[in-house]
Amino acid sequence: MREAPILKADRLSRHFPVRNAFGIRTGAVRALDGVSFEVAPGETLGIVGESGCGKSTLGKALVGIHPLSGGAIVFEGEEISRLSGRERRAVAPRLQYCHQDPGNSLDPRWTVRRSLEEPLIVHTELEAAERVIRIRDLLRQVGLPQTHLDLYPHELSGGQQRRVGLARILALHPRLVVLDEPTSGLDMSVQATVLKLFGELRQAFALTYLFISHDLSVVRMMCDRVAVMYLGRIVEIAPTETLFRAPQHPYTQSLLAAIPDIGGRRVTDTFTLEGEPPDPARLPSGCRFRTRCPRAVAACAETDPALRPLRPDHAAACLLAG
């Protein structure tokens, strides 16, 4: 079927302890609660969900910014979640993380040249002269003039900072890049430019993307497959077209119904998402979505539904799906 996955997440979990006023542990917030998925080389997997569903935690856990509480990450055939500091850092050139605004990932006191040179100093044996050549190449590839090398981040525009941040991430030719909310906070025209840039870079560097976003229309445009997260779990995963055409999980259905669609059928009349997600430290019994689910039945309070395949490439965590 598909080729071997470049990244395989196996039952990832990340728990934050909840402490009372005396610092005694009273419970845990399960930001990630058994998240499993695979990413094929060259594809773009979208991760969507409301704020607080664990999307960002997932991204940061994958690249090692946050430690995991459990589970395994297999990247290019190698288990990386339990590696020691030095061995883990050796994976970093191939597995990169792009912050919401990659411009913010630049040290405010460093020039563009120094910021771009750092990954090369840390991870390659290149001589100073060769590094300069690489840096100039990178700058051209993200579409910035060479004259910007000696500027500080605050001397660049937001868009230019973003490009420098991207250049820094791409300096080591990563295989997979985790993009964390790459379009939030941008106006539509800039958003289009940024997405176009991501598309071009994917071509130029043969990248695989993990595209974390809450913006469903962007995800639909960019991604081959989409995983929907709710309170630390993946509740549905399917190829983009399938998911948007025939969502199976009631949560996905409500999310899709919430997209404003000019000239389209009004689906909001039949399906709305009400209220806030429950406190992740006190999850309801059974299905974690049942408190907001319009279709919930008695059985939903009893069993916590696992993600089960409905078709070979489509899985949902709902008793009633399929």
């Binding site: 500091g85 990169q96 913010n104």
Partner: peptide, 21 residues
């Protein structure tokens, strides 16, 4: 700060982050 997180994600050794960033 984002730029420190970014340096960690970039695989920069800890001593380097502390001394240079």
């Amino acid at each position: 700060e984002t730029f420190i997180e970014a340096a960690i994600a970039l695989g920069v050794p800890t001593w380097r982050i502390i001394l240079l960033h």
